[in-house]
Nucleic acid binder design. Structure first.
Lengths: 222, 222
DNA sequence: ATGCATCTTTGCATAGCATGCAACTTATGT
DNA sequence: ACATAAGTTGCATGCTATGCAAAGATGCAT
């Protein structure tokens, strides 16, 4: 019995592959239609038709229409957490976080077309940007756990039996704040970069944000 | 001609007062019903009936059902902005922000019952917490503008002719980040306080969060 | 007070989102 | 090949949300 199925990989039986294909087809159809006609104008019926499944099946994969717009890579959070845990001990938690997220974002930027379409769609309707935040909030709690585990190696992390409620209550203020601020850093970086694309590369903006945070948000040249 | 009508005050004609009353009645009915039966189980019909208006009228006041849950005090943002602008020049932007928000939160905490019901409802369904963030995001842009104006007094703020798009593009990274981080600070404080209500008063948690931010999120006792 | 202009509320019609259920089709394991 | 489990589909249903036009309430000038 292999330990495989990191569940983001390509393996699995025909069934799993088909499911992933269907989900991907729905997500991509949703984004392309949204980019073309505006997110609010696209009906679930249109998305389903473009992906070649019934409307009912769409709702087997996504709880709401908007979920199809915002869930890009369901495994990114897990990779970031592992990266935080595995980072050299010489790094501060904030530095480890910066490295982990920078690596992930650099990879995301490779898939240029989809990343760009996503940015466009989300930017076009703030409503979706908010949902995107929401999609990352469960991740945020898990990330806070990983940070806590890094600081205090005794802490157990990734316990599947724990409810979100329990996770939240067990957390100290510091890891919680760090995770929240990191998510905010990403969001702010994306917004600023998108507003001024000509002036700066995305990863540079991201680094500058973390520099500001590490410096305690000092008042700029008064 | 008085300078009055800070539009949160009690003044105004009968029409305005009635409108505010209706809106308040809807918001309060929504929160009470949500606290009692669960936010998702409450229909717009029930909220409208409890407030004594028609369903259609509900949608004249709120774009979506969930908006009724999250919009507590529509003028809080404006007060914070003014407070930031009026703060003594000796304070850093971060300090001015902390003072402004602490004052506002202290007042909110006075209205104990509603504040508490809100916290409960939002905490019970993360979905709404997300929408709450969204409701504050427009405010966030305005706040970033106010911060920019405080730093560079030449900057115009509160121009009603500017679109959100224009506002966003004009902003520097620093004020944008500061506004975003401040909003995150509030959210994190509320979450942590709610998870451990016995252990610490809310405003103390809030102060600690800002201390951590001002110190550059240093690694805790390793 | 009377009448007019403006704003607000309301019911009705309509479209789209979302869920439960039962029937049907397709993989998987033996 | 067979039985079981998993996935898909259509149908019925309820709720959210918007446009429109009629009716009601308010503000204002005379």
């Amino acid at each position: 019995m292999q330990l495989m199925s990191e569940k983001g990989a390509a393996g699995g039986g025909l069934r799993e592959r088909k499911k992933r294909a269907t989900r991907a087809a729905l997500a991509e159809a949703a984004i392309r239609l949204a980019a073309a006609h505006g997110a609010e104008k696209v009906t679930v019926e249109a998305i389903s038709a473009a992906a070649g499944v019934s409307v009912r099946t769409f709702f087997n994969y996504f709880d709401t229409r908007d979920d199809a717009y915002v869930v890009i890579d369901a495994d990114a959070g897990a990779r970031i957490r592992r990266s935080v845990l595995d980072a050299p001990a010489s790094l501060t938690p904030l530095e480890a976080l910066r490295e982990a997220m920078a690596a992930e974002l650099a990879e995301a930027e490779q898939q240029h077309e989809l990343w760009r379409l996503h940015a466009e769609v989300l930017h076009a309707s703030p409503h979706l940007l908010v949902r995107s935040l929401g999609a990352h909030m469960a991740d945020e709690t898990l990330l806070a756990e990983a940070i806590a585990a890094r600081i205090r190696p005794g802490t157990r992390t990734g316990d599947p039996a724990a409810t979100d409620e329990q996770r939240r209550e067990a957390l100290d203020l510091y890891p919680r704040l760090l995770a929240a601020v990191a998510a905010t850093a990403v969001r702010t970086s994306v917004e600023h970069w998108f507003a001024r694309q000509e002036e700066a590369a995305f990863l540079d903006v991201f680094q500058e944000v973390f520099d500001l945070l590490a410096a305690g948000l000092p008042a700029p040249r008064a």
